[in-house]
């Protein structure tokens, strides 16, 4: 069971009040992109055992989207942050680094 805090309304609730929206920080290759880039955007996803970044929606609450950083193995939530960013905020990176000293931030767009 995941306990998430929505940064849009401040509610902390368990995951059934939310809806998972898949991997975060994808680069959206559009018209004119190469077939390889377009395939990567449409189909290729990370499936890590450990630190992962996801989009979530507070579907039964305020209705807004946000980002979450969590560990797929321990279900630890490192933090949630605004959906209005394509990069991972430094304070989230710092929190993860505190907990997982060997972890390296991914390259995001």
């Amino acid at each position: 069971m995941l306990i998430l805090t929505c940064p849009n309304c401040g509610i902390t609730a368990e995951e059934t009040e939310f809806h998972a929206g898949g991997e975060a920080h994808l680069t959206r290759h559009g018209p004119g992109a190469s077939d390889d880039d377009f395939e990567k955007y449409l189909f290729m996803r990370e499936n890590p055992k450990g630190v992962h970044f996801e989009r979530w929606r507070h579907v039964y609450g305020c209705g807004k989207w946000f980002h979450a950083a969590r560990d797929t193995m321990t279900l630890e939530i490192f933090g949630t942050y605004t959906a209005q960013t394509s990069t991972i905020p430094q304070d989230i990176i710092d929190k993860i680094s505190d907990r997982r000293p060997d972890w390296q931030p991914p390259e995001t767009a």
Partner: peptide, 9 residues
């Protein structure tokens, strides 16, 4: 509190 009651908002 906006939430769900069992299966509905």
């Amino acid at each position: 509190r906006r939430t769900r009651l069992a299966q509905v908002p």
